[in-house]
Design a protein around this nucleic acid. Structure first.
Length: 637
DNA sequence: AAAAAAT
């Protein structure tokens, strides 16, 4: 309860009425004065997850419309947390109560009886809830331009790589899975799916270098759930011990770095578990753990979890991994960057999870640095290595623009950008949480419906911000790195790097929030001499992507060539042109990599990827002196 | 240097 009180308190202090009030605001941009009335708590409104992305009562992306009015009724209180909870799919009309998570026969929940799968009958209402209506196809999950996937290069290596599939058929997929895929309006497999489906069906382990936009989530959900549908659950082990009645034994464990990503995967999993015996569940921090654990007890065959919360539940003995047949690590490099390696190793190696040989393990990672290679060596067996080209970023999907903007000009330039045209959903990235808050407030005061997402906001605020962004209530999302990777938000048209990151990989991930799934997007970056650190990488990236390279970039890169990173990251050799980071199967000529000297030079990105987290120090040494330019510009943030 | 994640 105190949590809730804190949340609410924070909300009002924060003036987060901007989400709800934006619609009324927008009619009169530049009218900062109208803001005063927005601070009434009643303005806060929350769209329950099962109603999100629905056109009813709310004109999508028409943020000048009557958005905030249409969503009446919900008082927006009781479900502040449990927020995650309500993802189970509301049963009752306005049902955001925690009970809505319980699977029951009328919730599209099938059964496994006497060694046979008994899918539940179809249910129109649930299908509408999970998959949306046919009319709005193209707005939520689809909108995918499947044709553009055909160009994506894929390279599979390893022993006995199975042939790729070319369509979703049973076999190798389960009949029910094919039906669910159809309901989701996925018409044909993306490149990563073409390989992952037969690989998993053959019982093989997989190490895949791929981005979220590549259809990665389906890449593991389709085949893994398919196998589950065919094979059924394992019995609770004899070793369960006392108190095992409130313990859950998931068959599938999926881990991902951020709460939003976990939540997003869970949403997908719900679709593909439809009518089957597999009950999906989710575990992540920021919400009440007691409630979350009770939810788990109502069914947890597939668990999507953030490492921290899962560790917590394991310590409380509420989750057993003894029945895990499928382990999936998503965004593995990101998780390691965030320091999760000890926890992940603990979960995988020191709890009761079956040994490598007795489970199937799939790892997904954007890059393949040494620490990921080590993890792959320890977690995977005779795996197949899959390297999937990027769906954008280096192709023509994303138009990349770089503007020379000094720090104190940024505010004015972003206003120009935002007022220029009818922008669709726009994500603005900043480097710091403070700046994200500041900028969101600033934009909001200037009449732009903006909201912010970063790690200092409560989970409730984060979810609300994301929802408001997705449904167009707040079509401008100011974000920190929390939203840089993995999040799959359809229809983002513009990414603005208000502050450029210091790492070119972050840049690639950020701009990858637009131009997704084969669609086009724009990325605009504010560059000045404070961003010298990535100037060389920027130039090579833009060049590879056949984008315009502004003269000032060349000029500044020459200026810095005396000291800086001499040659930057050189190479970028990892396979497909423009891929960031090394993504090559390293298991060649000599197997073991413990002492192999080949790494540093072998991969283009070897230098920065070689060690786990040590690049920070390596870089900061050469650059700290370059920051002489911050003459009290801090006064406004 | 910042960000993320269990409390």
């Amino acid at each position: 309860m105190t949590d809730l009180a804190q949340d609410m308190n924070k909300l009002s202090v924060n003036g987060d009425a901007r989400n709800g009030a934006s619609a009324t605001q927008n009619g009169a941009p530049a009218n900062g004065g109208a803001n005063g009335s927005a601070d009434q708590p009643q303005k806060r409104q929350y769209v329950p997850p099962h109603l999100r992305n629905r056109p009813q009562g709310q004109a999508r992306s028409d943020f000048g419309g009557s958005g905030s009015n249409g969503r009446g009724s919900s008082s927006g209180r009781g479900f502040a947390f449990g927020g995650s909870g309500s993802y189970g799919g509301g049963r009752r009309g306005g049902g955001y109560g925690s009970a809505s998570r319980a699977p029951n026969p009328r919730s599209g929940q099938g059964r496994w009886v006497d060694g046979k799968h008994e899918p539940s009958p179809r249910n129109e209402r649930i299908e509408l809830e999970l998959f949306g209506s046919a009319e709005e196809s193209g707005s939520s999950t689809s909108g995918i331009n499947f044709d553009n996937y055909d160009d994506i290069p894929v390279e599979a290596s390893g022993d006995d790589v199975p042939d790729a599939i070319t369509s979703f058929t049973a076999p190798p997929l389960d009949e029910l899975m094919v039906e669910n895929i159809t309901l989701s309006r996925f018409t044909k497999p993306t490149p990563v799916q073409k390989y992952s489906v037969p690989i998993v069906a053959k019982g093989r382990d997989l190490m895949a270098c791929a981005q979220t936009g590549s259809g990665k989530t389906g890449g593991f959900l389709f085949p893994v759930l398919s196998e589950c549908f065919k094979n059924g659950p394992l019995p609770v082990p004899d070793t369960a011990g006392p108190f095992s009645y409130n313990k859950v034994y998931p068959t599938v464990l999926i881990m991902a770095p951020t709460r939003e990503l976990v939540s997003q995967i869970f949403e997908e999993a719900k679709k593909f578990c439809y009518r089957s015996w597999v009950r999906p569940a989710v575990a992540y921090g920021g919400v009440d753990i007691g409630q979350q654990m009770r939810t788990l007890q109502r069914g947890c065959d597939l668990l999507v979890a953030a490492p921290g919360r899962l560790t917590d539940m394991l310590e409380r003995n509420r989750v057993s991994l003894a029945n895990v047949k499928y382990l999936i690590l998503d965004e593995a490099d990101r998780m390691l960057d965030m320091g999760f390696e000890p926890q992940i190793r603990h979960i995988v190696q020191e709890c009761d999870m079956p040994d490598v040989q007795d489970r199937q393990t799939l790892m997904f990672s954007a890059t393949f640095p040494r620490n990921i290679q080590m993890l792959a060596r320890d977690f995977l067996k005779e795996y197949i290595f899959l390297s999937v080209g990027r769906v954008g970023s280096t192709s023509a999907n994303i138009t990349q623009k770089v503007l020379l903007v000094e720090d104190d000009e940024k505010r004015s330039v972003i206003l120009d950008l935002l007022s220029a045209a009818d922008l669709g959903l726009t994500i603005v990235f900043t480097e710091t949480k403070r700046m994200a808050d500041y900028l969101a407030d600033f934009l909001y005061d200037q009449g732009f419906p903006a909201t912010a997402i970063h790690g200092n906001r409560t989970q409730y605020e984060r979810e609300k911000a994301l929802a408001a962004f997705k449904n167009g209530t707040a079509p401008i999302l100011v974000a920190t790195a929390v939203a840089a990777r993995g999040l799959d938000i359809p229809n983002v048209q513009h990414v603005i790097n208000y502050d450029l990151p210091t790492d070119i990989d972050d840049y690639v991930h950020r701009i990858g929030r637009t131009g997704r799934a084969g669609n086009v997007g724009i990325a605009t970056s504010f560059f000045n001499r404070n961003n010298k650190i990535i100037v060389k990488d920027m130039i090579s990236l833009l060049t590879e992507a056949s984008q315009e390279v502004p003269d000032f970039l060349i000029k500044i890169s020459r200026e810095s060539s005396y000291g800086g990173r001499g040659g930057g990251r050189g190479g970028r050799s990892g396979g497909f042109g423009g891929r960031s980071g090394a993504t090559r199967d390293f298991r060649r000529g000599g197997g073991g990599f413990g002492g192999s000297s080949g790494f540093g030079g072998g991969f283009g990105g070897g230098s920065s990827y070689g060690g786990s987290n040590d690049f920070g120090s390596a870089r900061s040494s050469g650059y700290s002196s370059n920051y002489g330019n911050q003459n009290q510009s801090t006064s406004w943030w």
